[in-house]
Amino acid sequence: MITVNGDPLDWHPGMTVQDVLDAKSYTFRMIGVWVNDKPVPKGEFGTFVIPDSAVVQAIHMVSGG
C-alpha cells in the first residue's frame, strides 16, 4: 500500500509514477510528483519505480483563468 495525496492506493512490485497517475486518472500536463519528498523529473515518470509504503505527492500546478 502507498499513499497518493494522502489517500491509500494498492501497490504492486514495479509500480511506476506513470502507473500511479493512470490509476488516479491524473491527466493534467502540469503535474509534479514527489516520492518520499524527493522530486521525480517528468522524463522519468514512466521508469521511476515506487517502493512499497511510499508517500507520493502528485501536485497539480494551477493554470488557466
Binding site: 509534479g32 523529473p41 494551477v62 483563468g65
Partner: peptide, 23 residues
Amino acid sequence: CKLPWNDVEPANNRIVNPPKEAA
C-alpha cells in the same frame, strides 16, 4: 496579465521547490 505567471513554468520549478512553494 496573470497568464505568464503560471501558465508556463520553468523546467526546474518542481525540482528546486517543495510542492507548496512550486505552486
